[in-house]
Write a protein that binds this DNA or RNA. Structure first.
Length: 465
DNA sequence: TTAGGGTTAG
């Protein structure tokens, strides 16, 4: 099929989200010879190969494809311009990113604000805050996007005080600026501050006057902060955000919907979570993960497994997190055979390599069901060293099923891993006390005192709402 | 020269 370069360029832009069509367009571009450099082509067409390469680099999703296209671009003498490097830098790991940095310098493109912003983000996400700041100072004219990228650089590197100070000094703030700080507090584990900052945003003049409006990213971030806190206030705040979304958005976005399911699920409001799930028009794997996990954690293990089957029927590929949720359901619902089968076939069936969390689930699964020796066998044969969560699950099982020797063997390993954590000492000590091994119990209690560890008093909370 | 940068779930 014969197509003009301009037409194919437009087509590339439009089909960015459709990988299959993208490959077909790519073939058309190649077979029409538009990627070849013709020195005698009319002046208006001289840039066409560069434009097409740029469009393809930006449209392909994998970093490998992007870099490969860039090498072809150089080989075919299509000169990269200021549009070429942003999408490359966006997906680059640090070493390659620094190579592109020198390329832009060599080609005289380093004053381009788009390239500078991508470089700033590159250094920021690789924990090189001073480099990021240096790039920020290179901007010929500071714009709001550059400021937001710098704001995010402070946030993702754990400098929230600097971020807020920077935010206050910004002459102008848009929804990205506000969202970056709301999200920054959450990233740094300060969920209360994240929610308070969102509150500050909502009462700010710009929002009241409608000049700035929270978007899906803002709502998803603050909802995630709510889900990370316990209690009525966090739930109420989440409900208010939910109300705001219902009043202001035509439909529930994937990320906001997933955050809501996660929030309601964590708070035990399963009917609300299910309602949100049903209302969502587009559901991604993470949406199903949130729903499966909510059911698994609130005594509806069978339904969690049914949901997993439904998800597969919808043609979605389970992720590593899906498997954690499903294995949790198996452990809590005492579905030992199903859980073990899933664990053993997850690589073969879904290409998912078991990580620490999966081992934790399967040890919990076996341990709860009283198969303590099999659980110990799993731990012994793990391809990496078990962490405190895996050992903790095992120790809990040993205590319930009175497997004191096995418990001691693993428990000692654990003390080395988490010396500062009192829970494990107490658990080991109680195991010995329960078996009336008072000398062992007393020894451990002494160790607790000597290590200067304070037992954190346990508390229970009843939510009467 | 028709395009490119900053915030989102577990």
């Amino acid at each position: 099929m014969s197509c003009s370069g301009g037409f194919l360029l437009q087509l590339t832009q439009r089909c960015k989200k459709h990988p299959k069509q993208m490959m077909q367009i790519h073939s058309l571009i190649v077979t029409n010879g538009h990627l070849l450099h013709y020195p005698n082509a009319p002046l208006s067409d001289q840039w066409m190969p560069t434009l097409l390469y740029n469009a393809l680099i930006s449209a392909y999703h994998t970093h490998k494809h992007k870099v490969l296209l860039f090498t072809y671009m150089l080989a075919n003498q299509a000169p990269p311009n200021s549009h070429t490097f942003s999408p490359l830098l966006k997906s680059s790991p640090l070493p390659l990113g620094t190579t592109f940095h020198s390329q832009t310098l060599k080609r005289g493109l380093l004053s381009d604000p788009f390239i500078l912003t991508s470089l700033l983000a590159l250094y920021a996400r690789n924990q090189l805050l001073p480099h990021a700041h240096r790039v920020f100072e290179e901007f010929p004219m500071v714009c709001i996007v550059a400021c937001n990228a710098m704001l995010n650089a402070f946030s993702i590197n754990g400098h929230m005080e600097a971020a807020v100070a920077f935010f206050e000094r910004m002459p102008q703030k848009d929804v990205y600026s506000w969202t970056t700080v709301v999200n920054g507090f959450a990233l740094n584990g300060n969920f209360g501050a994240s929610i308070r900052f969102f509150g500050k945003m909502m009462s700010h003049g710009d929002v009241v006057r409608g000049l700035v409006k929270p978007n899906e990213a803002t709502c998803a971030s603050v909802l995630s902060s709510c889900a990370n806190l316990d209690g009525r206030v966090a739930l109420d705040c989440g409900k208010q955000v939910h109300g705001y979304v219902l009043m202001n958005e035509a439909k529930l976005g994937v990320n906001v919907g997933t955050s809501l399911i996660n929030l309601y699920g964590k708070m035990g409001r399963l009917s609300n979570a299910e309602k949100v799930f049903r209302q969502m028009v587009v559901r991604k794997v993470c949406t199903w993960n949130a729903m499966i996990s909510s059911l698994a954690c609130h005594g509806r293990e069978k339904e969690a497994l049914d949901m997993f089957e439904k998800m597969k029927l919808h043609g979605l590929k389970p992720s590593s997190i899906t498997l954690v949720a499903v294995l949790t359901a198996c452990a809590r619902g005492n579905f030992v055979r199903e859980g073990l089968e899933l664990f053993r076939s997850m690589w073969q069936d879904f290409g998912i390599e078991p990580i620490m969390k999966h081992y934790g689930c399967v040890v919990d699964l076996l341990g709860r069901a009283g198969h303590v020796e099999e659980a110990a066998e799993i731990i012994r044969n793990m391809p990496f060293k078990p962490d405190a969560s895996v050992l903790g699950a095992f120790l809990g099982a040993c205590r319930i099923h009175g497997a004191i020797e096995l418990g001691e063997e693993i428990g000692k390993k654990m003390l080395k891993l988490q010396r500062q954590h009192c829970g494990q000492y107490v658990l080991l000590s109680s195991m010995n006390a329960e078996k009336e091994r008072w000398d062992h119990a007393a020894d451990l209690r002494r160790e607790i005192m000597e290590a200067g560890i304070h037992e954190i008093p346990a508390y229970s909370m009843v939510d009467l709402t």
